[in-house]
Simulated assay, not measured.
Amino acid sequence: MAARIERLVTSGQFTLDGGTWDVENNVWIVGDDREVIVIDAAHDAEAIARAVGDRRLTAIVCTHAHNDHVNAAPALADLTGATIWLHPDDLALWKQTHPHRDPDRHLVDGQVIEAAGADLTVLHTPGHAPGAVCLYDPGLGTVFTGDTLFKGGPGATGRSYSHFPTIIDSLRDRLLTLPPETKVLTGHGDGTTIGDEAPHLEEWITRGH
């Protein structure tokens, strides 16, 4: 059975640098009727567990460690027995939210995470956060971009641990080189495609400066 992608939207707050904002996050569930992975366990572990249902949750993969993307990860892991995966460059951010619980596994650029017909290749795409990653599955024609790429441009880089020239390099070298028909499924809001976003790179650079 081919893998499918399910979207759950959860609500909560994003907190960094002394500010707090109300946000809605996309939680992505990838797999089949037996086994799934969750990308970004945001805000509500019980709601995510209900969406997973009686399927085996093998991994909780964090695109980055801003609190709104990881705040439900330990509780979801406790509910399901899944392992939490995070790029080590985001451990400092992770510790702001979970000082007493480490991720279980480190994401490495180029590794492939398998789940029930899905093969998600890890692309290290720093800029929005040092350990930000995207997850690309050519079979599904989809890349999960977290907060690195949105419909209309790159993720925010105005706060601690972020860097605009770095996110531009990540977009240019790692994401916009993917096939133009690739679907972009984001950490917040509606998706897009690589082909729709790639022509605007120079505009983003000009805007960012």
Rank of each mutant, 00 (worst) to 15 (best):
A72V: 08
T15A: 15
H100D: 15
T157P: 06
I60C: 12
A156L: 13
R105E: 15
A82C: 11
C62E: 14
G195D: 03
D40L: 02
D169W: 02
G146M: 01
A116F: 10
F14G: 04
E202K: 10
V9D: 02
D90K: 02
P99Y: 09
H43Y: 04
P180H: 07
P74Y: 09
R4V: 12
G19S: 13
D137F: 04
V38Q: 07
A82K: 08
R101Q: 07
R4M: 14
P180M: 04
L201Q: 06
V112I: 14
A129K: 03
R4A: 13
R159S: 13
A118L: 02
R34N: 11
L93R: 12
T206Y: 01
R207K: 13
A118D: 03
A75E: 14
A92T: 14
P165E: 04
D32H: 11
G110E: 02
L57H: 12
S170I: 06
D102E: 14
A156Y: 06
D89C: 08
D68Y: 13
A51R: 15
A45P: 05
P74T: 14
P154D: 03
W28P: 02
Q111T: 05
D169V: 12
L135K: 00
D54C: 07
S170N: 04
E202D: 15
L86G: 10
D104H: 13
H106E: 08
G146V: 02
D54A: 12
R7G: 05
F144N: 02
S160D: 06
T121C: 04
H98S: 05
D40T: 15
I168S: 03
T125V: 13
L91C: 04
H128W: 03
G81R: 05
A65Y: 04
A72G: 09
K183T: 11
T80Q: 05
T192Q: 04
D90N: 13
V143D: 01
L91P: 05
A65Q: 10
G191N: 02
A132I: 06
L149F: 01
D68G: 12
H200F: 15
F164V: 09
T20V: 14
D32Y: 06
H43F: 14
R172L: 00
D17P: 09
A73E: 05
R101M: 07
D190Y: 10
I5Y: 08
I194H: 01
L201V: 05
R56Y: 07
I113E: 09
D169Q: 12
R55I: 09
S162N: 10
T20S: 15
A3C: 08
N67K: 10
E35H: 07
G187Y: 03
H163K: 06
G117W: 03
A82Y: 06
R50P: 01
T15C: 14
R34W: 08
A92G: 09
I29V: 14
G127P: 05
R55Q: 08
L171C: 08
Q96C: 08
G18P: 06
W21V: 15
P103I: 13
L76P: 03
G189N: 10
T20H: 05
R34M: 05
E114P: 00
I60P: 10
I205W: 00
G153L: 01
D102P: 01
D32W: 09
D169Y: 00
S11W: 13
H128V: 07
H66C: 10
D32N: 15
T121Y: 03
D32T: 07
D40W: 01
I37N: 00
P165C: 10
T182N: 01
A73C: 13
I167A: 00
L176Q: 00
G155C: 03
